[in-house]
Write a protein that binds this DNA or RNA. Structure first.
Length: 685
DNA sequence: GCAGCAATAAACAAGG
DNA sequence: CCCTTGTTTATTGCTG
């Protein structure tokens, strides 16, 4: 069952064919009339936004309730069987294999039954392996196994230590523990996970010991972290592992760490940017997964600062729910050793933390997935109806972005139209096509024009938070931005550095690639007569010659003043929204934008910004051009309609009172110009 | 295809 | 010498 996971659209289940039809329906509509449509994606509601996350939590919870009871019964039986077999002798471990897991598809049952990671969940969902019923069964199984793990732990504690040692030894030897003869294979794997967690603790102690701060001899040799099949090891488990063993791993390259690292790489996915870039490039996290990147950095930082610890900061133990004050690192270690030793409570807390991380990662994965689906869909849409050269252009741009992130972007000349670039489907690239990753595109020069019809100050004021937080290129020329910066200053004059600061303060976009845009700022200041350098006592300041500025582009903007006025008016009464809300609304407004909410330029701006981020996907889809709409993309200058734009001083026009006009206009608006972030990759600067 | 504009890159100089 | 500031030139992409 497929459901729309995007926007406020109705959650209607769709079959595969219906989904395609639906997508095609949207694709067939001229992009200039329609904003990106809600993406119908083959996912269940689990992959929806937070609401869905909550839903699934409830869903899981209810499933767990059922599972709990089942498990308790099952557990009792198993314990009885275990005890019986200890008495009567041990049977062949093969019985484990014959004992089927709960009714779960093979592909799932084959997985090591551990807590489902977001990745697994995604995979399951994407593969459409599970029906909701199956999913429920799986969840029950998962939880049951978790409970079982807990209870097994207790049980083991009550058993002879010999039993545990035996278990460990056998696992170390790659054999199946005897205790697992009576449990399903899932339970076996859960025991393994339990052991891994114990190993985490052991490793932790080991690491502490290696720091010379503990003298405890580990009771058992560190067991190799058993790689879980199919790369299914939970990322969060790795992270925990790395966190716990970070200091240790820095100085030792044991098999444990190797397997951990390798698995990390595996989890990142083979299509991700090279491991090296992830590791070496401090900005690579924008392209890759933080869950992978972060531990790496932590590991390195710990290497540099032996007294730093993921669980210790600002004199406080950062163990979840602890916050005990530890004056110094040794006392923290002592505290950690005493209060957070390997016991039920610690392992339970560890599990909780794992789940927290899982939730976060799931959330992140969902959003990434949605973004990718959106982009994929839009690319398809934009390429389908167009002639070959343009789609090539577009696709190669994206491809370039990927290759650029993999190779050395700096060395890449701007060859966005290079046909030699493989036309790799977008979906095959790094699973994370983030906003920032779009910025890693090579220097693709894209026309970058002012929203002539919208006062810059108005737009900036309306979307201030958005620009501040989203790395979206403001749809204004450098000249306009510089002018705005200067005009915003109390004395209408700024030093170059102050202009820089304004840029970085106002636009997240300009917090990157400083060398590039600063050069552009200087270039513009020097180039345009409208910027006048005034020698000051302290140095030089830049001012704006408004007359010159107005003379700059009179020919470009002309047309019906009333339309402009309408635009400004409708634009002005939009309440500024915070960035997150804006982004969300932009998402949701996309379909409406083309139809009903033409009067909401703020949303329009956001929609435009999103389009901008879409790497020109909708470029040249200007089959319908009509410039009068205030809801038209603010990115789009009005070409055909000649409006005298500049006479409208933005400072005058942006007043909130200058409005009161039509909110609705022609649903047509031109789409033909999309501006993307050419984005020199700052990562390697 | 061309002109114009804007973005980008880069060389260069002057001054702190 | 390095950095910042400022100027200039060249190139490229986009649009009309």
């Amino acid at each position: 069952m497929f459901q729309c996971v995007f926007s406020s659209s109705v959650l209607q289940p769709l079959s595969t064919s219906c989904l395609f039809k639906h997508l095609f329906y949207h694709s067939a509509t001229p992009a200039s009339q329609k904003q990106p449509e809600p993406i119908y994606s083959k996912k269940t509601e689990i992959q929806r936004q937070t609401v869905q996350a909550h839903s699934i939590k409830l869903f899981i919870f209810s499933a767990l309730q059922v599972a709990r009871q089942l498990l308790l019964q099952q557990q009792q039986q198993q314990q009885q069987q275990q005890q019986q077999q200890q008495v009567s002798g041990l049977k062949s471990p093969k019985r484990n294999d014959k004992q089927p897991a709960l009714q779960v598809p093979v592909s799932v049952a084959m997985m090591t039954p551990q807590v489902i990671t977001p990745q697994q969940m995604q995979q399951i969902l994407q593969q459409q392996v599970l029906s909701p019923q199956q999913l429920q069964v799986l969840l029950q199984q998962q939880q049951a196994l978790m409970l079982q793990q807990q209870q097994l732990q207790e049980f083991y504690k009550k058993q002879q230590e010999q039993l545990q040692l035996q278990l460990l030894q056998q696992q170390h030897a790659g054999k199946q523990p005897k205790e697992q003869q009576q449990v399903a294979t899932q339970q076996l794997a859960f025991q393994q996970q339990l052991l891994q967690m114990q190993q985490l603790q052991q490793q932790h102690l080991l690491s502490l010991q290696r720091q010379g701060l503990l003298t405890i001899q580990p009771g058992q040799p560190a067991l190799p972290l058993q790689p879980l099949p199919q790369g299914m090891i939970p990322t969060e488990l790795q992270q925990l592992w790395k966190e716990v063993t970070s200091a240790h791993s820095a100085e030792e390259t044991t098999g444990n760490n190797h397997s951990s690292l390798d698995l990390t790489t595996t989890c990142v996915s083979s299509s991700a940017p090279s491991k090296t870039s992830l590791i070496m490039n401090p900005h690579a996290s924008t392209n890759g997964q933080l869950s992978v990147h972060t531990p790496k950095r932590e590991s390195m930082s710990h290497e540099e600062h032996p007294h730093s610890h993921p669980l210790y900061g600002h004199g406080v133990c950062k163990w979840p729910g602890c916050e005990a004050v530890c004056e110094d690192f040794p006392s923290f270690l002592k505290h950690l050793n005493s209060e957070h030793a390997l016991d039920d409570r610690s392992t339970a807390q560890c599990r909780v933390q794992m789940q927290v991380v899982q939730q976060l990662e799931l959330q992140l994965a969902k959003d990434k997935e949605r973004l990718q689906a959106m982009m994929t869909h839009l690319h398809v849409k934009s390429t389908e109806p167009k002639a070959a050269p343009q789609p090539l252009n577009l696709v190669s741009s994206v491809t370039l972005s990927k290759s650029a992130s993999e190779a050395s972007p700096q060395s890449l000349p701007h060859t966005p139209t290079t046909p030699t670039a493989p036309l790799t489907p977008v979906t095959q690239g790094p699973s994370v096509i983030t906003t920032t990753s779009m910025h890693t595109v090579g220097p693709i020069r894209r026309r970058y024009s002012d929203k002539y019809n919208v006062p810059i100050s108005s737009d900036i004021a309306q979307n201030q938070e958005f620009y501040k937080n989203a790395e979206v290129r403001p749809p204004f020329t450098y000249a306009s931005l510089i002018r705005q910066a200067i005009l915003e200053s109390p004395e209408k004059q700024l030093t170059l550095n102050e202009i820089y600061n304004w840029f970085t303060r106002m636009f997240a976009y300009f917090r990157r690639n400083a060398a590039t845009w600063k050069n552009a700022v200087r270039h513009n200041l020097s180039l345009h007569k409208c910027f006048v350098r005034v020698e000051n006592v302290k140095g030089a300041v830049w001012t704006v010659d408004e007359v010159e500025f107005q003379k700059r582009r009179p020919q470009k903007i002309s047309g019906n003043p009333s339309l402009i006025k309408n635009m400004q008016s409708s634009h002005a009464y939009c309440t500024p929204l915070n960035a997150a809300l804006q982004a969300s609304m932009a998402e949701n407004s996309i379909p409406l934008y083309t139809t009903a909410s033409m009067g909401n330029p703020t949303l329009g701006n956001l929609a435009s910004a999103i389009r901008e981020e879409l790497n020109g996907a909708m470029e040249h889809t200007n089959s319908n051009e009509s410039d009068s709409s205030p809801g038209r993309s603010p990115m789009q200058p009005v070409h055909p309609v000649h409006v005298k734009e500049e006479p409208l001083d933005p400072e005058e026009a942006e007043g909130p009172l200058s409005l009161v006009t039509t909110a609705n206009h022609s649903p047509d608006f031109d789409h033909d110009r999309d501006y993307e972030d050419e984005a020199v990759n700052e990562d390697i600067e």
